[in-house]
Design a protein around this nucleic acid. Sequence first.
DNA 1: CAAAATTAATTAAACGTTTGTTTAATTCCC
DNA 2: GGGAATTAAACAAACGTTTAATTAATTTTG
Lengths: 211, 211
Amino acid sequence: MKPSLSTKQLQLLDTAESLFSQKGFDGTSVRDIAEAAGINTAMISYYFGSKEKLMEEIFERKSLNIKEKVANLLKDDSLNPLEKMYSLVDMYIEGILSRKTFHRILLCEQIINQNPSIITMLDKMKTKNSEYINDLIRLGQRKGLFKKNIDIPMMTNTLIGTVSHTLVNLDFYKTYHHMEGLKDEEFERVVKKRLSVHIKNIYKAILTHES
Amino acid sequence: MKPSLSTKQLQLLDTAESLFSQKGFDGTSVRDIAEAAGINTAMISYYFGSKEKLMEEIFERKSLNIKEKVANLLKDDSLNPLEKMYSLVDMYIEGILSRKTFHRILLCEQIINQNPSIITMLDKMKTKNSEYINDLIRLGQRKGLFKKNIDIPMMTNTLIGTVSHTLVNLDFYKTYHHMEGLKDEEFERVVKKRLSVHIKNIYKAILTHES
DNA sequence: CAAAATTAATTAAACGTTTGTTTAATTCCC
DNA sequence: GGGAATTAAACAAACGTTTAATTAATTTTG
């Protein structure tokens, strides 16, 4: 069990996450972070050891762990396989859009990160997430409800890709649909709902036999 | 008309593009680029003015311009609206996967870039691309073949998002499907084909009335 | 056509900043 | 009073860019 963090440590993590998501890891200096958090620069090394380890801490705290939720989904008898997939879709939408800043960082670091411990973390996450979706789809196939020849990673790519690209282009989406007047929370609610409907439609069409 | 670039300038652009896509703009130094290209560091400022302008040059040269192609699509009488959408899907898959390094940069810079002239470039690109898809979908709707209540940006998000997320996770996809043995070109061919089939299925299901 | 003059390309070195981290001194709190 | 928290200052290294000197290429000239 890791020691819990102090208020100032959490403040540094939040500030760093915000700046990393705006300017990237390499584009953000420890002085930027410290100044924005109103804390002395040396405290970052003092608390976390280094800028890199601060980033690792952010990843450890914010990485999406849906293991337990999916396990519960699998053994939930009140839902049919398609409904379980629907539930998984909503989990991802919620998980990504309610962690917007972190996921912006994630999108960049997936491409340019060279930090070994973060690479390991990302690999584990991808493998796990893929296994879960695997299990759910296999279940639907065994029950004869889903088609046999499903390209499972492609399904994941559409789910995560659509949500991620929506996240990156949120402003464009808001402007396009003339929703500038909406409050932030309401706009977010609308986007989540539309993503949900949109992706569920896709999943139904690709997974099941009927139209 | 811009003056055409010398061999060494092109060499610098290619080297820079490759390094930016691996380590990001801020994670790549002008010394990195110059050394990798076997050219003196000062030549970057000499040729392009600055590191930032070098990046702008990369964007100007590699940004996807599908205007003409879509214009031809719109007036092509031999294709029905759905076939036109299919053609558009393939354009994007080809455009993104045949410019892998550039699009990795694009994915990062969409999030963290602060360079005004690149922001402008990206905005224009997004607006244009959105208009094209708009025109194509409206055409199908006027002809009564497409549904009325289509969330057009959401269609774009799924197209670009799926292709982009596939690009970022190419290695994972290769491993998952046990295609490590394939030659690079063949693997790329397979991925393009699968993306094509996958996304066209999605588009057909969402755009048209039939199953 | 060769020599001279001019322009362009290339270099190593230096420029002033900024980088992440460490130090040593100080303040704070129990 | 003693251990943790906080500070300003200093550290060397790396950053993007500029400079001034040199070489290469091109143009002008006799």
